[in-house]
Design a protein around this nucleic acid. Sequence first.
DNA 1: GAGTTTGAAACT
DNA 2: CAGTTTCAAACTC
Length: 639
Amino acid sequence: MPNEPSRIAIGLPQTLKYDCSSPDCDATPVIKTTCVSDTSLAIVPFVQETSEKGLSDRVEIRDTFQVEQKRDTIGSEWESLISDTSDLLIFNSPNDSEAFRGVIQKSLDPSVLISQFSQDDINEACQTTVDLDKYKDQTEGAGDMNEMNPVNESFEVASVTNFISGSLTDYMETRMSAPYSFKPDSNLHRGFRRRCLDFEMLAARRKNLDGGSTTNSSTDNKLVPGKPDSDSPRCIVPGIGLHLNALAIASRDNKNMKLETLSSGTQKLSFPSLNSPCTGGAETTYESLPSASTERESDAVENGVQLAEDASQASAYLVNEEFNQNSPKKKRRRLEQAGEGESCKRCNCKKSKCLKLYCECFAAGVYCIEPCSCQDCFNKPIHEDTVLATRKQIESRNPLAFAPKVIRTSDSVPEVGDDLITTPASARHKRGCNCKKSNCLKKYCECFQGGVGCSINCRCEGCKNAFGRKDGSAIMETDGEPGEEETDPSEKNALDKNFEKPDILNNEEQNPASALPTTPLQLCRPLVQLPFSSKSKPPRFFIAIGSSSALYTGQRYGKPSIIQPQNIIEKHFQTIAEDETPEILRGNSSPGTGIKTSSPNSKRISPPQCELGSTPGGRSGRKLILQSIPSFPSLTPKH
DNA sequence: GAGTTTGAAACT
DNA sequence: CAGTTTCAAACTC
């Protein structure tokens, strides 16, 4: 960055990449910086995202998007913006490490750390960021840096706090969630390697922390890149598994939620899905976690539901999971018990060497881990080269092969205040299914599995997808709703059976807005309407979808770690990802235009550009997604 | 836990 | 691009 050589240059190097592709982005400030530096385009969005998360005012969020749109349309202006916003990079600049360090040294007490920076500071900073124009003006001044410090430190603090507080796992998880990332050159903020993570390391880290050592140092030591230690946390491979970011988020959220729940005493929650193996051990961690988000507790809980949902579908990073799972069967059983089978990726591959999309781990962009029962597995850090090569090959065939299968579309353009949705699901399977016998009522069906309705892209036969039929006739809605007629009892049973409706749903039933058969669509709406409202409970499966989106956005924009410890930002993030996005899309996209742009029967996925097409000022929603996608392909490591 | 079914992924 | 094979998850018993 021309304008900020001294600061940015130092830390940006490759950290960017790692972080960008890591689910962590959302969690750590570093990511932000990284992302920004990585892609000039990402800067604004990134910043905005950050601000968004920090903002409680939804209006501001919208403004942010608007800004983004504006920027987008301007196009050429990006670069100038970059330079202008170079200061933003400070968030993650190496210099922050100092602050970070200082914070840690000051106190290991998360609460203290958190307290050091008021939400106001964060918001203020965020707002500043949000308003790019304003920011420009600021950047021109010498004092802009100072102004940003609050944010910066806040981020750092959050990270530290998160790390220090019982949420170490969370922190690490976040860090490590970058499934395959580049080897970090930077000693700062480098991503932890998710699956490589083991508790020894965790323990060591804890010790280090306890000993007052800086997070950075410990991290650095652990993250020595390139060491072919399959069990070490350095299993990151470049650009892989971006969509897992969502998972990471989900898992984190999940944990957070749990924490919240615990604190409230209602835990036993009712979030069966949350009890997935993944979250199991996290409790301990969280128990110690200070209730920094006390004020938002209710929200957090509420969010927790959402998160839980999310987690159920995607999370795969909890350390616990790695401990508890010994055999595929067990894993599966646990998963099943948890209500979701996708939470923690584990495979049982025997012939694919875990180098094909057959392998869930590989497909998810993560290394196989101990709980996997795969044979002749090559999806391990020691085979990083092979993994990357294979991945590249697959991506060459299908650029979105590792993208989330279920993506958010602009289909739903529900109007706030609308009653139940009559519009198509807000998320769709990107390719559509091809079911012949399952009637799209079982998890064989990717659409169903993803909790989304079938679409015109599907080639399924006899579609009875409870989330929405191919013909668009049957989107599951609340009991007694129109969509129900389409769904016969058997279907419902199937649905319930497959997804094991959590108690939470029952709770939701009490809430008209989120009544039972929560379908992506259905829930989506409430979310849109009440992004931050405690009443809006995310659709159980939809969340996953949201996560995916979040993933994109999160990666691209980076999820601020600021609030992570408290879930505050996280919540915002979630909300934004799932709720705000739709609105954004709403603005520009017309219903039914979403992903359906691709040929209905086309098996091949259209490239991001096509699918997400970015029309200046045209489809902000899509644009948003689009931007996020680019990060994925970061297959080419910047070593 | 073994065996079957299913549909995506991979291959031809 | 269609048809076939391979694969591993999902499912059943």
